[in-house]
């Protein structure tokens, strides 16, 4: 149901039946290691190439989500996925393995919430029984695709970010009224915002205005009090972008309490110094949303969480041609409603 200019409300409270998150070695060193279902110690994951490793990671994550939901893959009506590779091969090849009706999406690192919003919309409109949405990113595959060969020694500036090796998947279903599962209540589709930044090693600063735009739109469309959410997690802005976002809120008089903000890029690696400004990649917001947040919603330590996943929509060609970096952010609200009844 359209609310305001660019948001959807989900009055039937589609529920997150299950989620799965699988990570790599670096993620195992971070503070969120316990929130992963499985961690690989080998970055190559016994595959022949980085691309195959990424694909396998998504395959595995989807299989885990289906297993945790107690379903079989024939039960899933639609599969919505995206990733960072050219022609989103990881998602399409995973869809081949799963052989489900499939919609491929691209939102760069915002893919997780784009997928979750679309999946919830389908369920809320009774257009599907179960929708699985997933995304994946792999550090070495992204380095190869966007930057340098993985073994090339380059010194990066402190604004650079470390692509997360992780797959995240969620299965959305109609609310059964039990109140046992977190629900998706709202979503805001972001606009592409480009403030003219060109440095691919500083995507936090490029994406922060997109996150701000979506955030403001979300609160405007739903007319929510600014302290409605227990936690607002932005995608992968990292330390640099997170600081800019907080200052933007202050400058534009958006009184969201500062302690309610967190950033997936900062959460996933904590204080590991090798990651510069923090984590990034599709797997970053996906692993935080489907791992950390889901676990805490299910435990009850968090009740209302707004996830604002940000994406930098650049390509290796566009930045070589000196184009600026267009950015986007999609928001989805996940809540725990005790004994919720589907209306």
């Amino acid at each position: 149901m359209l609310v305001g200019y660019q948001s959807w409300a989900f009055p039937k409270n589609p529920m997150i039946l299950s989620t799965a998150v699988i990570g790599g070695p670096m993620e195992g060193r971070g503070p969120l290691a316990d929130d992963f279902d499985l961690l690989h110690s080998d970055l190559r994951m016994q595959q022949k190439s980085w691309e195959q490793a990424e694909r396998m990671l998504l395959d595995e994550t989807c299989a885990k989500a289906i297993e945790k939901a107690g379903l079989s893959k024939d039960n899933i009506t639609f599969f919505i996925a995206g990733d960072l590779m050219n022609q989103i091969i990881s998602s399409s090849f995973a869809a081949r393995t799963l052989s489900m009706p499939y919609l491929g999406i691209f939102g760069a690192c915002s893919t997780s919430m784009e997928g979750l919003a679309l999946a919830s919309l389908m369920i809320d409109a009774d257009s599907a029984l179960y929708v699985m949405t997933g995304t994946v990113s792999h550090n070495a595959a992204a380095e190869k695709h966007y930057r340098y060969p993985t073994e090339y020694g380059a010194q990066k500036p402190p604004t650079a970010q470390w692509t997360v090796t992780a797959g995240g998947a969620a299965i959305i279903a109609a609310n059964d009224g039990s109140g046992n599962h977190p629900v998706v209540t709202r979503a805001t589709v972001g606009r592409v915002v480009d403030m003219g930044l060109t440095d691919p090693f500083n995507m936090g600063a490029a994406m922060a205005p997109a996150a701000f735009d979506t955030l403001v739109s979300h609160f405007r469309d739903f007319d929510l009090p600014y302290d409605y959410y227990d936690l607002i997690i932005t995608g992968d802005l990292g330390k640099v972008g997170h600081r800019i976002l907080l200052d933007l809120c202050e400058q534009h008089d958006v009184p969201i309490p500062r302690d309610r903000f967190a950033d997936a890029g900062m959460m996933v690696y904590g204080d590991i110094p090798d990651v510069w400004s923090g984590g990034s990649g599709c797997g970053c917001s996906a692993s935080v949303a489907y791992g950390y947040v889901q676990r805490r919603l299910r435990e009850g330590s968090l009740k209302r969480v707004l996830m604002v996943a940000t994406g930098a929509l650049l390509s290796p060609i566009s930045y070589q041609q000196k184009d600026t970096i267009p950015c986007i952010a999609h928001a989805a609200a996940m809540e725990r409603i005790e004994g919720s009844q589907s209306s």
Partner: peptide
């Protein structure tokens, strides 16, 4: 050229962001 094309809002933001970037050591 890019700077000339950027709107005043964009230029203002670019300066805003620049001030919040950690300097290269």
């Amino acid at each position: 050229q890019k700077l000339k094309k950027a709107t005043p809002t964009m230029q203002k933001y670019q300066q805003f962001a620049k001030a919040r970037e950690p300097a290269r050591p």
